[in-house]
Write a protein that binds this DNA or RNA. Structure first.
Lengths: 336, 336
DNA sequence: AAAAGTATCCAAAACGTTTCGGATAGAATT
DNA sequence: AATTCTATCCGAAACGTTTTGGATACTTTT
């Protein structure tokens, strides 16, 4: 049987009230007895029962991380881990614990977002990897549970989000290709069920417009963020539009898929085709040629998401938090 | 205010006891009232308070995942995610939730393993990524908390472990190189603070012995499991022993480091040097030449770890669970 | 010397469940 | 008709905390 506050009280010859107040640093207990109680607690190896405490205080010091699509076998998210590390780091000082929920569209129908959170009494949640069409999206728009989303723009009374400036990032990537002399620039975008896809498309268009290059709808194709997505789209794109000399991608995985497709088609990167990715995953620097891409600071995304969630829990106002990005230039795009 | 069992009781005109027993499927409540109560609970959107329940039943339906070294920024573990996905899958049917602890040697000194688990009232834990010299290792050897380790051989009353058959796997990899005609085979092993390193070394030795090739201590070097580790060790190894024609690695990351080192040294893989890895991470099939390596079924490791933990919690006897591996042959090793 | 203030303590209620040990009433058995 | 069963219900205790609203005794102020 675990040792309780009662045991300590008996041992110290005081009431449980006093033990509680002593251990929690209340002022109305003498330093002498406080020390005595602390020592006894230490000796008995006392650890407070978080359930009992949570029951009365209505605080659990726990937040949830609800993820979808990120850890499916066969389709592991390339930077989920970095984000997770950031989240854990952001939670550390305040000693909040993290409980991990994985969801999919079916489970979202089975149990609502609120129920999921209430079941486990989390004080708030970070959510990541949802598609715009997921049931939780609607729910989160009107929830009262402190929430911060990653890469999904919803801003209400209780929910904020963090993301990169996708418009600007895509603008920079496309502008870079234009600066290298490219005029016929394809864009292999992510699926149209992700907010970032629209933002990146906007940035792509913006760069074209600024440089007086007409936007051609047929140069952009939507597909999964995966390698296969890139592979297939690339083949199609260059087959139908051989005049394309560069293609910008909404993810590094897609860009790598294009690498492979190019190879299969007998095209050399960057000699025959320039390629730019998005994310800067670890792989990007390992492959040859090195992939020119947009670096997202994913650790920081997680860190700020956690910090922001904590602040919302404390009652502060939700925000949109922008995480700095950076164009990192390697060898997959060349001047023409 | 959340709706409680009392509210339902009042609403239904019965006692809280009856509500509890109705909702929990006890037989001593008529089907009629049970239905009525269920309906009311549904209408009121009742979710049981897990804290209160846990307080009295002493069960939390929660297990911990304690990880070390796996999600440090700059050194993300290549298959932690797969294992995690497996764990979540293994926990699903029994509806256990997972709470994630990240530890390092300092935090292990600050709070003991038992305290960590007791604080959050987890019923058991899966632990992953510990080094043999970590403080928790000693503690886990004598803990009464149901525990299953990944890749760390400890077997007691309450703790079991899952791992690949590292001896056999290393034996197979080395034998394969020998079969290709190699005689001077280097081995870039992981650091000597991991159990798997010793097992893999044993398998390496075994293969040599079986083929009457004398074991040379200077052909094996211990280093971090990282890419840099491989890079540095490879350079050293081939510089000091240019007669080496093949090198086996304790991880794919190290093998990839060797790829890079070989390139820097003007050596071609597999023409000038044959390389074999361990793990079969995603990258292994993406690089050129494709990396010949040992595939570990990491998803299954996680899945079985979770299932086994649940069985230990239920009172069954801990075991050592072996996960099948497989030599996957690609293009990084050639016949000589 | 009386009044007010201060430091230190405590009893009891509350949080929302589960569970133990009956209680009640009608049905079945003798 | 008396007894035993059975089905259905319930009161109260228990889990381990925190918190409210005092109580006590000693100091200080008037």
């Amino acid at each position: 049987m675990a040792v309780t506050i009662k045991d300590i009280a008996k041992y110290a010859g005081v009431s449980v009230t006093t033990v509680s107040r002593a251990l929690n640093g209340y002022p109305d207990v003498s330093e002498e007895t406080r020390e005595r109680i602390k020592k006894i607690a230490e000796q008995l190896n006392y650890t407070p029962n978080s359930l009992a405490r949570g029951l009365v205080t209505n605080k659990t010091h726990t937040v949830g991380l609800v993820v979808s699509e990120l850890i499916k076998p066969g389709a592991y998210h390339p930077f989920f881990l970095e984000v997770l590390a950031g989240i854990k780091a952001g939670l550390k000082k305040d000693k909040y614990d993290l409980i991990l929920f994985t969801v999919d569209p079916e489970s979202q129908d089975a149990t609502s977002y609120e129920k999921l959170c209430n079941d486990r009494k989390v004080e708030g949640a970070i959510v990541e990897g949802l598609r715009l069409s997921d049931p939780y999206i609607k729910e989160i728009k009107k929830t009262q549970i402190p929430t911060v989303l990653i890469d999904i723009p919803i801003l209400t009374d209780k929910v904020g989000y963090v993301s990169s400036d996708n418009v600007q990032a895509a603008f920079e990537a496309t502008s870079y290709l234009i600066k290298l002399g490219h005029r016929n620039i394809g864009f292999i975008n992510g699926h149209d069920d992700a907010a970032v896809s629209f933002e990146r498309l906007e940035g792509y268009k913006k760069a074209l417009k600024k440089n007086n290059i007409p936007y051609k709808e047929e140069y952009v194709v939507f597909d999964d963020f995966t390698q296969e997505g890139g592979y297939n789209s690339f083949k199609m794109l260059v087959f139908e539009h051989p005049e394309i000399t560069a293609v910008f991608h909404a993810s590094d995985l897609m860009a790598i898929g294009s690498f492979k497709a190019a190879k299969d088609l007998g095209m050399k990167v960057p000699d025959d085709i320039s390629i730019v990715g998005f994310d800067d995953i670890e792989l990007a620097s390992l492959i040859t040629p090195g992939l020119t891409t947009i670096r997202q600071d994913t650790f920081k995304m997680g860190y700020n998401a956690a910090k922001h969630l904590l602040s919302i829990i404390k009652g502060e106002k939700p925000q949109h938090i922008l995480i700095p990005h950076k164009l990192v230039i390697r060898d997959s795009a060349r001047k023409i």
